[in-house]
Design a protein around this nucleic acid. Structure first.
Ligand SMILES: Nc1nc2c(ncn2[C@H]2C[C@H](O)[C@@H](COP(=O)(O)OP(=O)(O)OP(=O)(O)O)O2)c(=O)[nH]1
Ligand SMILES: [Mg+2]
Ligand SMILES: [Mg+2]
Ligand SMILES: [Zn+2]
Length: 570
DNA sequence: GCCGTTTTCGGCCCGACTGTTTTCAGTCG
């Protein structure tokens, strides 16, 4: 069992324990343990296998969680989880997706009314069976009925790029609100997470009610979930939520720090403050003894008050940013403008829509200095992948137009060569040897067992003609899980053989992810951020890759395609 | 359940909003 699977078990334990009314701190211990294991850069199995090592030395993992991890690695399941799954009816978990209905109320309703499905709950509302229960009333019953569709929809988190569009649209609407003096998006959107659960907007204004009225008017079908004096939550579309917090100008920094999160980052920040005799909330930084305010108008002030430099939002996940901030080793994160080459794109020779020239012109327009044309190889027949003959013809065509682009753009002769299901490369070595740039990637046999698929990728890494492994884990966010590949082994081999690893910037891929990127950086493996464009517009996804790279703590120096092609050493 | 330059026990971030509460629990950010 790999770390992610163990972490999933602890997350599920935490969720189920909540429905049993457990001590909230015990529940958080499971959540913290899950996070610690998910973000660990070596495998739990490897630590357990080494008698010199002790898993319970990992912060957040004590005797109990270490023991449970051991059981999971050895047997693949956890008896305590199986017991909890039997004990907690599935329907209460679904019920808790209704806004305002949490674990305690869900359990009470389920027990009192013997509910077995959300349909039963809807029926109970219609038959007016809830308003008479102790602790419930007419309003609660109405709110449940209202929120049932959200629970039934069970909507997934949306891609960052889609959140970006919605944020722009809401932003344009809010701009016409004259009482707003300052406005800033916060939450996971500001942190650049690959998916966003809801949007969080921070606003400075004197007239709170007017701003809230304005937000409510964003969409004729938007609904207000909660609304008070300082915050409001609305629902736009089917179930997507937008939260807005309204504060005074001198609270802006503290409020932005609070609202940007993450939750774990906030908890850590506030604990550090407390240790220094201070208190941080969304209104400012205060002395614990006399409540006097010491900071809060800017984020910089808030962090400075606890002796830290400003921390970039992308790093605020309570991973290692506090360590780095305290020691003055926060990375200077890469920016989109730093990227001057793009080494993964397709043309209409395979499944792209544009010609080489069109891609080249679009790359110049985007300020790039070099590109590699990397169409599919023959095994990818659905995309009309190239055999050696067609590929050499394409390279000849590139040779012929190179002079046209002299001094403006270097066009590299590349290929995205399939790693065959039985292992080995789809194209002959003598052909690959003639390329400037060879991507290797998996398209078939994605569900092969761990050893087999890992061996295939290791084989590609060991091939001296392979420059880079493209979309190394194969995941499609919200759609397809990653290959069951041993990434420790892959990264170790990549380091040994000097093979680059791709960060595929397609917003559905973002592969490698932030955690892998951070691990790769620590190992000294250079990253290439590529668009995998299939059209000229496809070159525009670079910005999403940059977000993910920043979350991984990458600097300009960590990313190879920030350097001129002439300086590349291979 | 985890943790420890004051602690091996007793804390664990801090506050807004809602409903049915007569003083606060539950839920959420
Ligand atoms: N101090 C503190 N702040 C919190 C807590 N929960 C949320 N926040 C802050 C930090 C979050 O980033 C911010 C927005 O909350 P959200 O629930 O929208 O979370 P976030 O945007 O991080 O992730 P999301 O993609 O929306 O699930 O509010 C909490 O328990 N304590
Ligand atoms: Mg959010
Ligand atoms: Mg939110
Ligand atoms: Zn591709």
């Amino acid at each position: 069992m790999d770390n992610a699977a163990i972490a999933d078990v602890f997350d599920e334990m935490a969720q189920l324990l909540e429905f049993r009314g457990e001590n909230p701190f015990r529940i958080r211990a499971y959540t913290n343990g899950s996070k610690a294991i998910r973000e660990l850069d070596e495998s739990v199995a490897a630590i357990l296998a080494d008698p010199e090592r002790d898993l319970s030395k990992v912060p957040g993992i004590g005797k109990t969680l270490a023991e449970k991890s051991k059981v999971l690695v050895e047997t693949g399941s956890l008896p305590q989880l199986e017991t909890l799954r039997k004990e907690i009816p599935e329907v209460v978990i679904q019920m808790a997706r209704i806004p305002g209905l949490g674990a305690k109320k869900a359990v009470k309703l389920q027990q009192e009314l013997a509910l077995e499905s959300l349909g039963d709950l809807r029926k109970a509302c219609h038959e007016d069976k809830i308003s008479s229960l102790k602790g419930f009333g007419a309003k609660t019953q109405a709110a449940i009925l209202d929120g049932l569709s959200i629970a039934e929809a069970a909507a997934a988190r949306i891609y960052w790029c889609d959140a970006d569009e919605l944020a722009a649209s809401i932003g344009r609407h809010m701009e016409s609100c004259k009482v707003i003096s300052k406005m800033q998006w916060a939450g996971s959107y500001r942190r650049g997470r690959e998916t966003v659960g809801d949007l969080d907007l921070l606003v400075v204004a004197d007239d709170h009610a007017a701003v809230m009225d304005h937000l409510e008017a964003y969409h004729s079908h938007s609904q207000t979930i909660v609304r008070g004096d300082t915050k409001i939550s609305i629902r736009v579309g089917k179930s997507f939520q937008v939260d807005m917090r309204v504060v005074e100008a001198d609270q802006f920094g503290a409020a932005l720090q609070y609202f940007t999160g993450s939750q774990a980052h906030n908890i850590h920040t506030r604990r550090l403050a407390k240790e220094q005799g201070l208190k941080i909330n969304e209104y400012g930084v205060f002395q614990l003894d006399d409540e006097s305010r010491v900071a809060g108008s800017t984020e910089q002030d808030v962090y400075a008050a606890i002796g830290l430099p400003w921390i970039a939002p992308e790093l605020r996940e309570d991973r290692r940013e506090f360590e780095a901030a305290a020691s003055g080793t926060l990375p200077e994160l890469i920016e989109t403008e730093d990227v001057i080459g793009d080494l993964h794109m397709h043309t209409n020779a395979t499944d792209g829509t544009a010609t080489i020239r069109e891609m080249a012109d679009a790359a110049i327009a985007r300020g790039l200095q070099y590109i590699a044309i990397t169409d599919h190889s023959k095994r990818v027949s659905m995309a009309m992948g190239l055999d050696e003959k067609r590929l050499r013809e394409q390279w000849k065509a590139i040779d012929e137009i190179r002079s046209e682009y002299d001094g403006r753009l270097t066009i590299l002769k590349g290929i995205e060569c399939d790693i065959l299901e039985r292992g080995g490369m789809d194209l002959a070595d003598d052909c690959l040897a003639e390329a400037d740039w060879v991507l290797a990637s998996i398209h078939y046999g994605q569900k092969q067992p761990r050893d087999q698929i890992t061996e295939r990728i290791l084989g590609a890494i060991e091939n001296p003609h392979v420059s880079c492994i493209a979309h190394p884990t194969g995941r499609l966010i919200n759609r397809r899980p990653p290959y069951d590949v041993d990434m420790d082994a892959v990264m170790t081999a990549a380091k040994k053989h000097g093979t680059f690893m791709e960060l595929n910037a397609n917003p559905a891929r973002l592969d490698l992810n932030d955690l892998h990127l951070a691990a790769a950086k620590r190992m000294g493996i250079p990253i290439v951020i590529s668009t995998d464009a299939h059209s000229i517009d496809g070159l525009g996804v670079m910005q999403y890759g940059i977000k993910q790279a920043r979350r991984g703590g990458l600097t300009k120096a960590d990313v190879a395609n920030t350097r001129p092609w002439s300086e590349w050493t291979k």
